[in-house]
């Protein structure tokens, strides 16, 4: 099958740098992914194309981009089942583009850091492991699979209008620790969560869940987090 890839290009080093599309034709085969096609283009047609890649097995989160209008991982997206003659690739929306399909990830990770995404528990640990039941583990088994690929936050309308909104990924990470029975950090995390750019900017739009390549129940987790904060406050 022959597929045309219409790829968003941007090179800040050129005078009057402007985002534009450039088309490439790739001969696809069954099993070929969007990342394979990008590699084919970069390695054999145009070495100046920039995008991030690493594990190519859907676990590192490097290659998230907008594929035909929907955020997802290039390495996990099979081409032929899409049954499209033209596939449009854009960088993740609402992040600054560094070059072509690579965006500036700093704001995303600053928001993540803001929710104190680590176990807070000042009690001295026991000699062995802290105990946790399988049911308690199950409550956090969904968010721990998050790969921080930025697909969700970049697809969130609340984030599009409010760049200070910490976004679904950071909130789901907060959920992961808030609902970890070993954690005692609720009070410290409250400041980042309970403000106008925090938890309450989530209007349960569900774009994040549509975009998530790992099919995580992000909105569900954020809703439980809202309830927890309200229960603690009122």
């Amino acid at each position: 099958m022959q597929v045309t890839f219409k790829i968003s290009r941007f090179d800040p080093q050129q005078e009057e740098a402007k985002q534009h599309y450039k088309s490439y034709t790739v001969q696809t085969s069954p099993g070929m992914t969007v990342l394979d096609a990008l590699n084919e283009i970069k390695w054999h047609q145009d070495g100046t194309l920039s995008y991030r890649k690493s594990c190519r097995s859907g676990i590192c989160g490097s290659c998230a981009m907008k594929i035909n209008g929907i955020n997802g991982l290039a390495c996990e997206t099979q081409i032929e089942p899409m049954k499209k003659k033209t596939i449009v690739l854009d960088p993740l929306p609402s992040f600054e583009v560094i070059k072509d399909l690579a965006v500036n990830m700093d704001p995303f990770f600053e928001h993540l850091a803001a929710v104190k995404p680590y176990l807070i528990n000042e009690e001295p640990p026991p000699d062995r492991e802290r105990l946790q039941s399988p049911e308690e583990f199950k409550r956090i088994s969904d968010p721990i699979a998050c790969i921080l690929c930025m697909s969700c936050t970049s697809s969130c309308p609340s984030f599009w209008t409010d760049p200070e909104y910490i976004g679904p990924a950071a909130l789901y990470k907060a959920y992961r620790y808030e609902f970890d029975t070993r954690d005692k950090g609720s009070e410290e995390r409250l400041e980042a969560l309970d403000n106008r750019h925090g938890l309450w900017r989530c209007h349960t739009i569900f774009n994040c869940m549509d975009a998530c390549p790992k099919n995580l129940k992000i909105t569900h987790g954020i809703s439980l987090l809202k309830r927890k904060v309200i229960a603690e406050k009122y």
Partner: peptide, 16 residues
Amino acid sequence: DRDRGIRSGGAFSWFF
């Protein structure tokens, strides 16, 4: 400056 005229949107606003 990012609030741009809107000060609601916290826990109270959500809850109430």
